[in-house]
Design a protein around this nucleic acid. Structure first.
Length: 228
DNA sequence: CCCTGATTCGC
DNA sequence: GCGAATCAGG
């Protein structure tokens, strides 16, 4: 299997939509989970909540402890010795002067550090504001000037939006399952500054509510898990 | 054990 | 560029 435009587009959509690499691999077919991850990284889209974070301190400590060259672990499948990552270039700490965190984090159940995760914050100009209590992050969504009347007619009004119809102005929310004949995208005019329309922005950007107060099903893009 | 993504490196 | 092997955390 090769990475055609369509497959890459599907991978990108699902990856950004929050699907796991396994789900994407299953959906695409013919590729493994690792292939999906590798491709995603090569495409430049990464940075998703991953179980393993590159922590300098812990990594260094582990490396230090595991640096016992007496008897290296036997490689059952790899005959040639492979060297993994090498600890180097200890980047200096970057203190972030955020004074407002004290009051805001007081009632926050999970005070995670999410400096580079603008994806899952929940705000929006369309009125789909879903913030957890105390989660007051007031960044304003980008509002670039745009014309009210598009130069070309909206392609989504008369036909289903295929991968080829995707552009910066239509909602990219997947409908159905990739690979099936009726798989298409929402195609509604996007919420300005977002890749989805207002309705799907509400699905895409949801705050994590407190553990107990989570009611129905979590948001699942592309139509939800396939029934097999 | 299972799951997850990250990383490396031979191809 | 691709992805299996591997690492590493949950």
């Amino acid at each position: 299997m090769s990475w055609t435009e369509e497959r890459i587009a599907t991978l990108t959509k699902m990856w950004e939509g929050g699907a796991t690499a396994s789900e994407i691999a299953t959906e695409l077919g013919g590729v493994s989970r690792n292939a999906v991850i590798g491709k995603a990284h090569r495409l430049g889209l990464k940075a998703r909540p991953s179980p393993v974070k590159a922590n300098d301190k812990k990594a260094a400590a582990k490396k230090e402890a595991a640096a016992k060259p007496a008897v290296p672990k036997p490689k059952p499948k790899a005959p040639a010795p492979k060297k993994m990552k090498e600890p180097e270039a200890p980047k200096a700490e970057e203190p972030q002067p955020e004074a407002s965190a004290s009051a805001a984090n007081a009632s926050q159940p999970m005070p995670d550090k999410r400096e580079n995760l603008p994806k899952i914050v929940s705000y929006g100009p369309g009125g789909f504001l879903r913030q957890g209590p105390g989660d007051q992050q007031p960044p304003i969504p980008p509002a670039p000037p745009r014309r009210l009347v598009p130069a070309k007619p909206d392609p989504s009004i008369s036909d289903k939006t295929s991968l080829l119809d995707l552009n910066d102005r239509v909602c990219r929310w997947p409908m159905g399952h990739p690979g099936e004949p009726d798989f298409h995208f929402c195609g509604v005019k996007v919420n300005p500054g977002f890749p989805y329309c207002v309705e799907h922005c509400g699905r895409a950007y949801q705050a994590q509510l407190p553990r107990g107060a989570r009611r129905p099903p979590p948001p699942l893009p592309f139509g939800g898990p396939r029934v097999r």
